Computed example of a mutant assay.
Amino acid sequence: GRPGEPGLDGFPGPRGEKGDRSERGEKGERGIPGRKGVKGQKGEPGPPGLDQPCPVDFPRYGGKQGAPGSQGLVRASGPCPMGPDGLPVPGCWHK
């Protein structure tokens, strides 16, 4: 007679051994930068400032202090009014 039909597939066989490792490939192109991260925590407060103005005399150079200089020219018709200290009123130059 004639041959019969093929049977069902059997169970898979055991896994083979791992192959040799190849050389490392070339590095790819750099992608587009991602989104900006969240804002960090606030830092520690700095040291306290000076309670007194900085000293004007320099003890390194020694010697006597000279006579005060003459007062500069005061412009009567300036764009800003002068304060009691002879300087323009604060905020006037910003306008």
Rank of each mutant, 00 (worst) to 15 (best):
K27A: 14
P88G: 02
I32K: 15
S22A: 14
R60W: 08
E29F: 07
E44D: 11
G66Y: 01
G86M: 03
K27V: 14
P88H: 06
H94C: 00
P14K: 05
R15H: 09
G91I: 02
D20R: 15
P3F: 03
G86D: 07
Q65Y: 00
C92G: 01
P79T: 03
Y61E: 10
R60L: 07
G62R: 13
P12V: 02
P90T: 07
I32G: 00
R60I: 01
S70L: 09
G40S: 14
P3W: 07
R15D: 13
G25P: 10
E23T: 09
C80V: 02
G31D: 10
G13C: 09
G83F: 03
P59I: 02
S70V: 05
E23G: 07
R35C: 01
S70T: 06
P3K: 11
R2E: 06
G66W: 01
E29D: 15
G66I: 00
G37K: 13
P79Y: 00
D9M: 08
F58M: 06
E26Q: 13
Q65N: 08
G83T: 05
G86N: 04
R15N: 10
D51L: 14
Y61R: 12
P68W: 06
P55D: 04
R2F: 02
P6S: 03
R75M: 07
G72H: 02
E17M: 06
Q71N: 04
G31Y: 01
P53V: 09
Q65E: 08
F58Q: 09
F11C: 05
E26A: 14
P55V: 01
P6I: 04
V89G: 00
G10L: 08
G49W: 05
Q52K: 15
D51S: 14
G46K: 05
G28I: 00
P90D: 12
G4I: 01
V56H: 05
G46A: 12
R15F: 06
W93I: 03
K18I: 11
E29G: 10
D57L: 08
A76D: 08
G31S: 15
G19A: 13
P68A: 05
P6D: 07
L73G: 07
V56I: 14
G43R: 09
R15G: 07
G13R: 11
R15E: 14
R15Q: 09
G63K: 00
Q41V: 11
V74C: 08
S77E: 12
D9R: 12
D9E: 09
M82K: 14
E5D: 10
P81L: 11
D51T: 14
G69C: 04
G43I: 05
G69S: 07
K36F: 10
K42A: 13
R24E: 06
R60A: 12
D20A: 15
G16Y: 02
P55C: 03
G66R: 13
A67P: 12
R30T: 12
G4V: 00
G46T: 08
M82W: 11
L50D: 14
P12S: 05
G49T: 06
K95N: 12
D20F: 06
V89F: 03
P59G: 02
D85K: 10
K18M: 08
K95T: 12
E29K: 13
P14H: 07
G16R: 14
I32A: 15
